[in-house]
Simulated assay, not measured.
Amino acid sequence: MSPHNSSSNGSEDVLVLGDSTFLLVRSDAVEERPWMAGSPVCPLLKQHHIAHVGILRCRYPFEIVRTDQSGSYMMACFGGEGSVRVDGAWKTVRSGEACLLPPFVQNSFRCKEDKKWDFCWVRYLESREQKPIVSQNSPVLKEYDGGPLKAAIEGMYSETCGMNSPSILGYWVDLAHQYALRFAQPHDYDDRLWRLWNQVEPDLNRKWNLCELAEIAHVSEEHLRRLCRKRYGRSPMQHLTFLRIQRAKHLLSSTDDKIETIAHSVGYENAFTFSTLFKKWVGWSPSQYR
Protein backbone atom coordinates (compact mmCIF):
# COMPACT_ATOMS: atom_id res chain seq x y z
CA MET A 1 0.00 0.00 0.00
CA SER A 2 1.04 3.57 -0.53
CA PRO A 3 -1.67 5.95 0.78
CA HIS A 4 -1.89 9.60 -0.07
CA ASN A 5 0.11 12.06 1.99
CA SER A 6 -1.58 14.33 4.50
CA SER A 7 -0.29 16.72 7.12
CA SER A 8 -1.44 19.43 9.50
CA ASN A 9 -0.10 21.95 11.95
CA GLY A 10 1.68 21.06 15.17
CA SER A 11 -1.52 20.95 17.23
CA GLU A 12 -3.06 18.16 15.14
CA ASP A 13 -2.18 14.71 13.87
CA VAL A 14 0.31 14.47 11.01
CA LEU A 15 0.46 11.66 8.47
CA VAL A 16 3.07 11.83 5.69
CA LEU A 17 3.65 8.38 4.19
CA GLY A 18 5.33 9.24 0.88
CA ASP A 19 6.54 6.12 -0.91
CA SER A 20 6.36 4.01 2.25
CA THR A 21 4.73 0.59 2.04
CA PHE A 22 3.15 -1.43 4.80
CA LEU A 23 0.86 -4.29 5.69
CA LEU A 24 -1.65 -3.95 8.49
CA VAL A 25 -4.05 -6.16 10.45
CA ARG A 26 -6.67 -4.38 12.57
CA SER A 27 -9.11 -5.56 15.21
CA ASP A 28 -12.23 -4.13 13.57
CA ALA A 29 -13.45 -2.03 10.65
CA VAL A 30 -15.14 0.66 12.75
CA GLU A 31 -12.30 3.16 12.45
CA GLU A 32 -11.94 3.42 8.68
CA ARG A 33 -9.05 5.85 8.30
CA PRO A 34 -7.90 6.30 4.69
CA TRP A 35 -4.55 4.61 5.29
CA MET A 36 -6.32 1.60 6.82
CA ALA A 37 -8.65 1.09 3.86
CA GLY A 38 -8.55 -2.43 2.50
CA SER A 39 -6.54 -3.91 5.35
CA PRO A 40 -7.80 -7.22 6.76
CA VAL A 41 -9.64 -7.48 10.08
CA CYS A 42 -8.85 -9.95 12.88
CA PRO A 43 -11.33 -9.59 15.79
CA LEU A 44 -9.18 -11.92 17.93
CA LEU A 45 -6.78 -9.01 18.46
CA LYS A 46 -9.37 -7.54 20.85
CA GLN A 47 -8.71 -10.37 23.30
CA HIS A 48 -5.40 -8.66 24.11
CA HIS A 49 -6.71 -5.07 23.72
CA ILE A 50 -4.72 -4.71 20.48
CA ALA A 51 -6.00 -2.12 17.99
CA HIS A 52 -3.71 -3.11 15.12
CA VAL A 53 -0.36 -4.63 14.18
CA GLY A 54 1.74 -4.07 11.11
CA ILE A 55 5.01 -3.95 9.22
CA LEU A 56 6.23 -0.70 7.67
CA ARG A 57 9.03 0.00 5.20
CA CYS A 58 9.36 3.75 5.05
CA ARG A 59 11.45 6.34 3.31
CA TYR A 60 11.84 10.10 3.68
CA PRO A 61 9.69 12.25 4.06
CA PHE A 62 7.74 9.74 6.19
CA GLU A 63 6.42 11.35 9.37
CA ILE A 64 3.65 10.52 11.85
CA VAL A 65 2.43 12.57 14.80
CA ARG A 66 -0.33 11.28 17.05
CA THR A 67 -1.49 13.95 19.48
CA ASP A 68 -3.56 11.49 21.51
CA GLN A 69 -2.20 7.96 21.25
CA SER A 70 -4.85 6.10 23.24
CA GLY A 71 -2.76 3.01 23.90
CA SER A 72 0.77 1.71 24.31
CA TYR A 73 2.78 1.47 21.10
CA MET A 74 5.68 -0.96 20.69
CA MET A 75 7.85 -0.85 17.57
CA ALA A 76 10.77 -3.13 16.67
CA CYS A 77 13.22 -1.99 13.99
CA PHE A 78 14.63 -4.64 11.64
CA GLY A 79 16.25 -2.42 9.02
CA GLY A 80 17.85 1.02 8.79
CA GLU A 81 17.07 3.63 11.45
CA GLY A 82 14.60 6.40 12.26
CA SER A 83 13.79 8.99 14.90
CA VAL A 84 11.17 8.71 17.63
CA ARG A 85 10.21 11.42 20.09
CA VAL A 86 10.09 9.94 23.59
CA ASP A 87 10.56 11.45 27.04
CA GLY A 88 10.45 14.89 25.43
CA ALA A 89 13.43 14.34 23.11
CA TRP A 90 14.21 12.78 19.72
CA LYS A 91 15.96 9.41 19.91
CA THR A 92 17.32 7.19 17.15
CA VAL A 93 15.91 3.67 16.84
CA ARG A 94 18.25 1.39 14.88
CA SER A 95 18.00 -2.10 13.44
CA GLY A 96 18.04 -4.60 16.29
CA GLU A 97 16.38 -2.19 18.72
CA ALA A 98 12.83 -1.66 19.91
CA CYS A 99 11.01 1.31 21.40
CA LEU A 100 8.01 1.40 23.73
CA LEU A 101 5.78 4.47 23.88
CA PRO A 102 3.32 4.81 26.78
CA PRO A 103 -0.37 5.68 26.24
CA PHE A 104 -1.90 9.15 26.38
CA VAL A 105 1.16 11.08 25.29
CA GLN A 106 1.97 12.76 22.00
CA ASN A 107 3.82 10.24 19.84
CA SER A 108 5.96 11.30 16.88
CA PHE A 109 8.27 9.42 14.54
CA ARG A 110 9.97 10.28 11.29
CA CYS A 111 12.40 8.96 8.73
CA LYS A 112 15.86 10.47 8.32
CA GLU A 113 16.52 12.01 4.92
CA ASP A 114 19.38 9.69 4.00
CA LYS A 115 18.20 6.51 5.76
CA LYS A 116 15.65 3.80 5.12
CA TRP A 117 13.62 2.57 8.09
CA ASP A 118 11.86 -0.78 8.40
CA PHE A 119 9.95 -1.75 11.53
CA CYS A 120 7.02 -3.76 12.82
CA TRP A 121 4.62 -2.67 15.52
CA VAL A 122 1.89 -3.62 17.98
CA ARG A 123 -0.55 -0.86 18.92
CA TYR A 124 -2.68 -1.41 22.01
CA LEU A 125 -5.99 0.28 22.84
CA GLU A 126 -6.21 1.15 26.54
CA SER A 127 -8.53 3.33 28.61
CA ARG A 128 -7.32 5.73 31.28
CA GLU A 129 -8.88 3.44 33.91
CA GLN A 130 -7.08 0.37 32.56
CA LYS A 131 -3.56 -0.57 33.63
CA PRO A 132 -1.35 -0.30 30.50
CA ILE A 133 1.30 -2.81 29.53
CA VAL A 134 3.88 -0.12 30.38
CA SER A 135 5.18 -0.50 33.94
CA GLN A 136 8.00 0.84 36.08
CA ASN A 137 10.18 -1.94 34.69
CA SER A 138 9.38 -1.24 31.04
CA PRO A 139 12.26 -0.02 28.88
CA VAL A 140 11.80 2.90 26.52
CA LEU A 141 14.53 1.85 24.08
CA LYS A 142 16.90 -1.12 24.08
CA GLU A 143 18.24 -4.00 22.00
CA TYR A 144 15.58 -6.40 20.77
CA ASP A 145 15.34 -9.02 18.05
CA GLY A 146 12.22 -8.04 16.14
CA GLY A 147 12.43 -11.02 13.77
CA PRO A 148 9.96 -13.27 15.66
CA LEU A 149 7.44 -10.45 16.06
CA LYS A 150 7.72 -9.61 12.36
CA ALA A 151 7.17 -13.28 11.46
CA ALA A 152 4.08 -13.47 13.70
CA ILE A 153 2.57 -10.39 12.05
CA GLU A 154 3.35 -11.75 8.58
CA GLY A 155 1.68 -15.04 9.50
CA MET A 156 -1.36 -13.24 10.87
CA TYR A 157 -1.66 -11.10 7.75
CA SER A 158 -1.38 -14.10 5.41
CA GLU A 159 -3.99 -16.06 7.35
CA THR A 160 -6.49 -13.19 7.46
CA CYS A 161 -6.09 -12.74 3.70
CA GLY A 162 -6.32 -16.49 3.08
CA MET A 163 -8.19 -19.27 4.90
CA ASN A 164 -8.88 -16.98 7.90
CA SER A 165 -9.00 -19.91 10.32
CA PRO A 166 -9.81 -18.69 13.87
CA SER A 167 -7.77 -21.45 15.50
CA ILE A 168 -4.64 -20.63 13.49
CA LEU A 169 -5.18 -16.87 13.87
CA GLY A 170 -5.37 -17.41 17.62
CA TYR A 171 -1.80 -18.72 17.59
CA TRP A 172 -0.49 -15.78 15.55
CA VAL A 173 -2.28 -13.23 17.74
CA ASP A 174 -1.00 -14.80 20.96
CA LEU A 175 2.55 -14.88 19.57
CA ALA A 176 2.47 -11.21 18.56
CA HIS A 177 1.15 -10.22 21.99
CA GLN A 178 3.71 -12.32 23.86
CA TYR A 179 6.61 -10.96 21.79
CA ALA A 180 5.45 -7.42 22.62
CA LEU A 181 5.16 -8.31 26.31
CA ARG A 182 8.65 -9.83 26.25
CA PHE A 183 9.95 -6.34 25.60
CA ALA A 184 7.41 -4.31 27.61
CA GLN A 185 7.44 -6.50 30.71
CA PRO A 186 10.85 -8.20 30.85
CA HIS A 187 11.21 -10.93 33.46
CA ASP A 188 14.99 -10.80 33.73
CA TYR A 189 14.79 -8.03 36.33
CA ASP A 190 17.94 -6.96 38.06
CA ASP A 191 17.14 -7.32 41.77
CA ARG A 192 19.00 -4.10 42.48
CA LEU A 193 16.77 -2.11 40.14
CA TRP A 194 13.64 -3.87 41.38
CA ARG A 195 14.53 -3.01 44.98
CA LEU A 196 15.38 0.57 44.06
CA TRP A 197 12.20 1.51 42.20
CA ASN A 198 9.91 -0.41 44.55
CA GLN A 199 11.22 1.80 47.35
CA VAL A 200 11.14 5.01 45.32
CA GLU A 201 7.74 4.72 43.59
CA PRO A 202 5.56 5.01 46.74
CA ASP A 203 7.53 8.13 47.78
CA LEU A 204 7.75 10.19 44.59
CA ASN A 205 7.25 13.50 46.41
CA ARG A 206 10.64 13.10 48.08
CA LYS A 207 13.58 15.08 46.70
CA TRP A 208 15.58 12.12 45.51
CA ASN A 209 19.12 12.55 44.24
CA LEU A 210 21.44 10.19 42.39
CA CYS A 211 23.53 9.47 45.46
CA GLU A 212 20.48 8.27 47.43
CA LEU A 213 19.29 6.12 44.53
CA ALA A 214 22.71 4.48 44.21
CA GLU A 215 22.80 3.75 47.96
CA ILE A 216 19.44 1.96 47.81
CA ALA A 217 20.64 -0.13 44.85
CA HIS A 218 23.99 -0.78 46.61
CA VAL A 219 26.01 0.25 43.56
CA SER A 220 28.07 3.27 42.58
CA GLU A 221 26.40 6.20 40.86
CA GLU A 222 28.16 5.43 37.59
CA HIS A 223 27.21 1.75 37.73
CA LEU A 224 23.59 2.70 38.40
CA ARG A 225 23.68 4.91 35.32
CA ARG A 226 24.93 1.97 33.25
CA LEU A 227 22.29 -0.41 34.66
CA CYS A 228 19.43 2.01 33.95
CA ARG A 229 20.68 2.90 30.48
CA LYS A 230 20.87 -0.78 29.60
CA ARG A 231 17.49 -1.68 31.10
CA TYR A 232 15.35 1.37 30.36
CA GLY A 233 17.22 3.51 27.84
CA ARG A 234 17.09 6.27 30.47
CA SER A 235 19.37 7.62 33.17
CA PRO A 236 18.26 7.00 36.78
CA MET A 237 17.02 10.60 37.17
CA GLN A 238 15.19 10.43 33.83
CA HIS A 239 13.48 7.23 34.94
CA LEU A 240 12.49 8.95 38.17
CA THR A 241 10.91 11.69 36.06
CA PHE A 242 9.12 9.03 33.99
CA LEU A 243 7.58 7.54 37.15
CA ARG A 244 6.52 10.98 38.35
CA ILE A 245 4.91 11.82 35.01
CA GLN A 246 3.07 8.49 34.96
CA ARG A 247 1.73 9.14 38.48
CA ALA A 248 0.71 12.69 37.53
CA LYS A 249 -1.16 11.42 34.44
CA HIS A 250 -3.09 9.00 36.63
CA LEU A 251 -3.98 11.70 39.18
CA LEU A 252 -5.04 14.16 36.49
CA SER A 253 -7.43 11.65 34.95
CA SER A 254 -8.77 10.10 38.17
CA THR A 255 -9.02 13.00 40.65
CA ASP A 256 -10.15 16.60 40.82
CA ASP A 257 -7.01 17.68 42.69
CA LYS A 258 -5.56 21.03 41.75
CA ILE A 259 -2.54 20.93 39.44
CA GLU A 260 -0.43 22.52 42.18
CA THR A 261 -1.46 19.74 44.58
CA ILE A 262 -0.57 17.07 42.03
CA ALA A 263 2.76 18.75 41.35
CA HIS A 264 3.64 18.64 45.04
CA SER A 265 2.54 15.01 45.35
CA VAL A 266 5.00 13.92 42.67
CA GLY A 267 7.96 15.94 43.91
CA TYR A 268 7.71 19.41 42.34
CA GLU A 269 7.40 22.46 44.57
CA ASN A 270 6.81 24.79 41.64
CA ALA A 271 3.65 24.13 39.62
CA PHE A 272 5.03 26.06 36.63
CA THR A 273 8.18 23.87 36.56
CA PHE A 274 5.99 20.78 36.77
CA SER A 275 3.68 21.99 33.98
CA THR A 276 6.61 22.81 31.69
CA LEU A 277 8.17 19.38 32.24
CA PHE A 278 4.83 17.61 31.86
CA LYS A 279 4.20 19.28 28.50
CA LYS A 280 7.70 18.38 27.30
CA TRP A 281 7.20 14.69 28.12
CA VAL A 282 3.51 14.23 27.31
CA GLY A 283 2.87 16.80 24.59
CA TRP A 284 0.16 18.75 26.42
CA SER A 285 0.02 20.88 29.53
CA PRO A 286 -1.57 19.23 32.61
CA SER A 287 -4.78 21.25 32.14
CA GLN A 288 -5.02 20.19 28.46
CA TYR A 289 -4.37 16.57 29.40
CA ARG A 290 -7.14 16.68 31.98
Rank of each mutant, 00 (worst) to 15 (best):
N5E: 12
S6I: 12
D13A: 08
L15M: 12
L15E: 13
G18P: 12
D19A: 15
S20K: 07
A29M: 08
W35D: 04
W35N: 03
G38S: 06
V41C: 10
C42L: 11
H52D: 15
G54E: 00
L56P: 02
R66T: 13
Q69C: 14
C77D: 04
G79E: 02
E81C: 09
G82R: 05
S83Q: 11
R85K: 14
D87K: 10
G88D: 01
A89E: 14
T92Q: 09
V93A: 14
Q106P: 01
K116A: 08
K116T: 08
F119Q: 07
C120A: 13
V122T: 04
Y124C: 14
E129N: 15
K131M: 13
P132R: 12
I133Y: 09
V134H: 08
Y144L: 04
G146T: 06
G146L: 08
G147D: 09
S158Q: 14
S158V: 09
T160D: 06
S167C: 11
I168D: 05
L169Q: 13
L169V: 05
A176V: 01
Y189D: 15
R192N: 07
E201R: 14
L210A: 06
L210C: 02
L213R: 01
A217I: 03
E222F: 07
L227A: 05
Y232A: 03
F242S: 03
R244M: 01
R244D: 01
A248V: 03
K249N: 01
L252S: 00
S253Y: 11
I259C: 05
I259Y: 05
I262E: 02
S265F: 04
N270E: 08
F272E: 14
F274R: 01
T276D: 05
W284Q: 11
S285R: 07
R290Q: 04
